[in-house]
């Protein structure tokens, strides 16, 4: 985990248009290992778009993403990054275990075994339940369990707290804190205000351009 300690994410001069409308331009920021970044802004200010650009699902109109001092395409960036978006990315006809095994096969095995991860997200014992029988909050926790079983440094989370109750939110917060304190980093959006006192948190406020 040597290189992980020094992981840095730099974003330089990023700009993005949507439907010929400027979402943001000349966006610059840095995140280091042990830090997390909270994107704030009104609906439609481009938070989700920015996250999707960061994980390579969308192309920026200009700008660069630099990972550990190298351009993202030339580095291990796409291997070190994991994304949980609006959609859970799980198959509702498959069981919890089948879903996680598949996620593991697509990625690189990480810090936790599947049963350990299920334990951590409080889904132990649900192994053989089809996902469509889970509640919305449980599904969310399942999609976050994917982050624990695969190897990654940077978590990109789009509204990870939606449809979670208080305990659920506290649980996810503790997972993020745990990840960060082990040299990881996170970039996330959230309507819910993060109350993690011991978290090295940066904030960026996206202003909708008109």
């Amino acid at each position: 985990m040597e290189n992980v300690q020094h992981a840095t994410l730099e974003v330089r001069d990023l700009s993005c248009f949507r439907d010929e409308r400027l979402l943001f331009s000349a966006l610059n920021f840095e995140v280091e290992a042990g830090q997390s970044l909270l994107l704030e802004g009104a609906n439609g200010s481009g938070k989700t778009t920015l996250l999707r650009i960061l994980c390579g699902l969308r192309e920026a109109d200009s700008g660069r993403i630099i990972w550990c001092g190298q351009p993202a395409e030339a580095s291990n960036y796409y291997r070190d990054m994991a994304y949980v978006g609006h959609a859970d990315g799980t198959k509702k006809e498959l069981t919890v275990l089948e879903n996680l095994k598949f996620a593991l096969a697509l990625g690189v095995p990480g810090k936790y075994q599947i049963d350990q991860a299920l334990d951590k997200v409080k889904l132990a014992g649900f192994d053989d339940n089809p996902v469509h029988t889970l509640s919305a909050g449980q599904k969310r926790r399942l999609s976050l369990a994917r982050l624990l079983i695969t190897q990654n440094v940077l978590w990109i989370l789009d509204e990870p707290f939606t449809s979670l109750d208080k305990q659920g939110i506290a649980l996810i917060e503790s997972l993020i804190t745990d990840h960060i304190s082990h040299g990881g980093m996170a970039v996330l959006t959230s309507h819910h205000d993060l109350r993690m006192a011991d978290l090295n948190l940066k904030r960026i406020h996206l202003q909708a351009c008109h």
């Binding site: 994980c55 390579g56 699902l57 796409y78 291997r79 990054m81 994991a82 994304y83 978006g85 609006h86 959609a87 859970d88 990315g89 799980t90 198959k91 509702k92 996620a103 697509l106 990625g107 690189v108 994917r146």
Partner: peptide
């Protein structure tokens, strides 16, 4: 279709493979 709708497709695109 179903992969696109439930987000599995995004996860597939993000796979290092």
């Amino acid at each position: 279709r179903s992969d696109f709708e439930d987000g599995s497709l995004e996860q597939m695109l993000l796979s290092p493979h």
